[in-house]
Amino acid sequence: MLEHTYGWATDDYLTTYFKETVPEAADYRKAFAEGTAGPRFRRVEKVTDLRPGDLIAIDYNGQVPDNTGHIVMVREVKGTFSGTADFSGETQYAVEIVDCTSDPHGVYGLTTYATYPDTRMVSDVDGDNFQGAGIGHMMFYASDATGEFSRYRWSVNTSKTTAQTLTVADRPIAAARVV
């Protein structure tokens, strides 16, 4: 997407700042977190500072074979969310995102799904959904003490279990804005 949108996003730029011509999600997360993504990116540390167009990179930390992580573009921060998968000392935010995935965000038909849908999800029948580029919703948590990312959930109706709600210690998160 960067190469198709910005003239500066050349193989030379990507190699210089991300060490690869085709960086993966973990590469973006590391460069965003360390502030080494070059002069075209500014780190966004607080969830409340996210704006449309910002990129959020999640590093799967070697937990998923053949997948370094996930990267999304913010479309809109829909606001705070509570009542499901709440954690003491953290505020949860519903974030509408644009991404490319084989696993749409959400469970079709659950009570919260209509408010936070995914354009790839067309029914509750397994295998009947689309894959690829689309618009969905993810839940990002901020530490009440710092405002920084503390964890995430894949969707608004993903459960609170450890496997479904992952902390930044398990899967580091960093965000940046194209400037």
Rank of each mutant, 00 (worst) to 15 (best):
R51E: 15
A57D: 02
S159Q: 08
G79Y: 12
I97R: 03
Y13W: 06
V72C: 01
R153K: 08
T68D: 11
T161Y: 09
T48W: 08
Y60G: 01
Q92M: 15
T80R: 14
I97H: 04
S82G: 14
Y60S: 07
T68V: 03
T162E: 15
P65T: 06
V98L: 11
V122R: 14
E20W: 09
K30R: 14
P39Y: 14
Y141G: 07
A37L: 08
H137F: 11
R51G: 05
L166G: 01
V168D: 08
T16H: 03
D103N: 10
D170V: 09
T84S: 06
G134A: 08
N67Y: 08
S150T: 15
T36C: 08
R43I: 05
L55V: 13
A9E: 10
G35W: 11
Y141T: 10
N61R: 07
A57S: 14
H70P: 02
M139Q: 12
Q63V: 00
T91F: 04
T112G: 04
V72M: 11
F130D: 12
E148A: 15
L50I: 14
P39Q: 15
G35N: 03
A169P: 00
A33K: 12
V47F: 09
R42G: 12
I135H: 02
T167Y: 08
S82L: 06
D27I: 01
H105C: 07
G136Q: 08
M121L: 14
G35S: 04
V168F: 13
I56Y: 04
V178G: 01
A169I: 10
D126W: 09
A175D: 08
Y13I: 10
R75D: 13
K30I: 03
R153H: 07
R153C: 04
H70V: 05
K46Q: 15
V72N: 00
T119I: 04
G69P: 04
F32E: 00
V125W: 05
R177S: 10
T68K: 04
A25R: 01
T119A: 07
K46S: 10
L14W: 03
G109Y: 09
V178C: 04
A163D: 13
G79I: 10
S155Y: 03
A9F: 09
E90V: 12
I135T: 15
T119M: 03
V72P: 00
R43H: 06
A26W: 01
G53A: 12
P23G: 02
T80P: 02
N61W: 02
T158V: 00
P172A: 14
T146K: 02
G35T: 06
P65I: 00
G35K: 05
T112R: 14
Y13D: 12
P104R: 13
T15D: 07
T112N: 14
R43M: 08
F41G: 01
D128I: 00
Y60P: 01
V125E: 12
V125P: 01
L14K: 15
T111W: 14
S88H: 06
S88D: 13
T15H: 05
M121V: 09
I56D: 02
I58Q: 02
T36R: 10
P23H: 09
K30A: 13
T68L: 02
W8T: 12
V74L: 07
D126P: 12
V72A: 03
E45R: 14
D103R: 05
D170P: 00
T68E: 09
I71P: 00
L55N: 02
V122D: 01
V168A: 11
R153G: 03
S123L: 13
G69Y: 02
